[in-house]
C-alpha cells in the first residue's frame, strides 16, 4: 500500500470468507430487488393486487425490501463474527503450538 490508512488494521484471516459471503448475499438481494422492478415493468397492474390486511403487492413488496435488507445485514454480521472468532481461535492455537515447539527445540 502506498500510504497508510487513518487507523491501521491487522491482517484479517476471514477476509476471503466475508467477500464470498457478501457476494452471495448481495446476489440474493439484487435478485429480490430486480423482481420488484420487473413486476412494475412487465405487469404493473399486479402491483395493485391485494395481498393481506387490505395491503397491495406494491406496499407489501416495498416494506419487504426494507425489512429483508435489515435481516440479511444481521445474518451477515452474525456469520462474519462467528467466522472471525473461529479463525482467531485457530490462529491463537496455532501460535501457541508453534511457541511450544520453539520452546521444546530450545
Amino acid at each position: 500500500m502506498l500510504h497508510e490508512p487513518a487507523t491501521p488494521s491487522g491482517k484479517d484471516p476471514a477476509r476471503l470468507y466475508k467477500v464470498r459471503l457478501g457476494i452471495w448475499m448481495f446476489s440474493f438481494y439484487a435478485l429480490f430487488y430486480a423482481g420488484f422492478v420487473a413486476i412494475n415493468l412487465i405487469s404493473p397492474q399486479t402491483m395493485g393486487v391485494i395481498i393481506f390486511f387490505g395491503l397491495n403487492l406494491a406496499t407489501v413488496y416495498g416494506f419487504a425490501l426494507i425489512i429483508v435488507a435489515l435481516l440479511e445485514a444481521l445474518v451477515y454480521d452474525a456469520m462474519c463474527r462467528k467466522k472471525e472468532a473461529e479463525l482467531e481461535k485457530k490462529g491463537k492455537k496455532k501460535h501457541l503450538k508453534s511457541n511450544t515447539k520453539k520452546k521444546g527445540k530450545s
Binding site: A6, K18, V19, I23, Y29, A73
Partner: peptide, 17 residues
Amino acid sequence: WIVALFVVAEPMKRLGK
C-alpha cells in the same frame, strides 16, 4: 446500502485513508 455493506464497507476501510 446492501451494496455498501456486502461489497464496499470493509475493503474501503482497509484501503482508504
